[in-house]
Design a protein around this nucleic acid. Sequence first.
DNA 1: GCTTAAAGAGTGGTCATACCACCAGATTAC
DNA 2: GTAATCTGGTGGTATGACCACTCTTTAAGC
Lengths: 241, 241
Amino acid sequence: MKGLKPVKTRRTSEGILEQIKTLIIEGQLAPGDKLLTERELSERLQVSRASVREALSALNLAGILEIKHGEGIFIKRPEPNAVIEPLVFILLLEKDKVQNILEVRKALEVEAAGLAAERCPPELLRELEQIIEEMEATLPQGEGEKAAQLDLRFHLTLAQASCNPLISSLMNTIQEIIGQTLRITRALWLSATAGTTQRLFEEHREIYLAVAARDKFRAREIMYQHLWKVEVELARLLKHA
Amino acid sequence: MKGLKPVKTRRTSEGILEQIKTLIIEGQLAPGDKLLTERELSERLQVSRASVREALSALNLAGILEIKHGEGIFIKRPEPNAVIEPLVFILLLEKDKVQNILEVRKALEVEAAGLAAERCPPELLRELEQIIEEMEATLPQGEGEKAAQLDLRFHLTLAQASCNPLISSLMNTIQEIIGQTLRITRALWLSATAGTTQRLFEEHREIYLAVAARDKFRAREIMYQHLWKVEVELARLLKHA
DNA sequence: GCTTAAAGAGTGGTCATACCACCAGATTAC
DNA sequence: GTAATCTGGTGGTATGACCACTCTTTAAGC
């Protein structure tokens, strides 16, 4: 029967943390709020303090709670970091699955490009223009730290210009994961992209111009082609690494 | 200084779980392996069993360990589901922002359609074909439970056909969240989609045909148009709800 | 009367011990 | 030879004690 899941909550600590999560999801606890103390939870739930601590420890690792020694336990504002750590852990163990995360990134970036073309506020459009100008100014220097920084700035600003905070958060998360886990030495990457700086710049500029022209289909198409080429190149590098 | 993070490991249980994770990342512990017992860990690490249990509880929630009462503690094979739970939590907290979730779904579905056109295995292509046939057979019945089930099956099978387990898992999750959180009564939805069943069917069929023809750009384009219309319609409904 | 230091209360953190419940393997009985 | 029982080892939970941190209150000194 689809939709039914095996009953898996069986440890006392699991029951405790499910209740706490439910309170948060239902809005009865909001970020910044203080949770009951360990002793109060223990009393209310009729369980030992050790079981309560196990549940709180798990929620702490999951980034849901912030525990302050001598002060109390506070609800954390959910942030991408809560998703990053498990993802990084998986990617560290299954490095060949980087391709999967790159495809998710491509999906989100193409959508962001289209939405940015629809919604980009003027100040972010100016910021994109400025990034493109800086990219052009650094062309004679070839690849380097500066070019990489500008590339990242461009993509993250575009995600922000989508005016969808979920996409923006996911993009921030994914870019950080990719940055942390790709096992490509800088020299290898730089040698691989040698001669393509001009092309990358032109593609970035075309994305910007499509966004500026409010042409969402063109923005999507160019971003798709741009990232498809990047994926192909990275797949080639990974195969020979 | 970029790359440096505040030293945050300070609780005994945090130190324990970091060591266990390091053993796994370095390959000294592999999925399926049995971890030392709680009492052994307590002895080796010179900490109490309660601290060990706190660490293990956290790793259990994170999907890294599998704890079997009376048997032992085993290393789990990492799976995308470990990522899903924190992501689901974030999505559930921002469920009021359904529009944002729908845009993330559109991004993933369009990418899945393109990848499915490239990679769809024959058995899934046959399954898609069968779903399309069942859709055609139920057309005279109009909207209903059957049509909704077929719609969901179509989209989830397409996600599976992308051969990207991350996309597939995310899609499963997002569909479930959308199903849980959309504040649209069934009657309202059915009345809103009255007269569009034929169009929805035709769009699904065109997506299938594009996938069958291995035309990834067309698959992407039709999926994009399909979901864009759904989003527009839902936005209209939400505004009047 | 104001400032500073100490005390107190409440909080989270860790530990030791005891006992329960589950599981797999070994042993015994038929 | 097979099934039932026993045993030892495992995870699960509880209780109580004490430590360390933080904030508030109170008292002492100027």
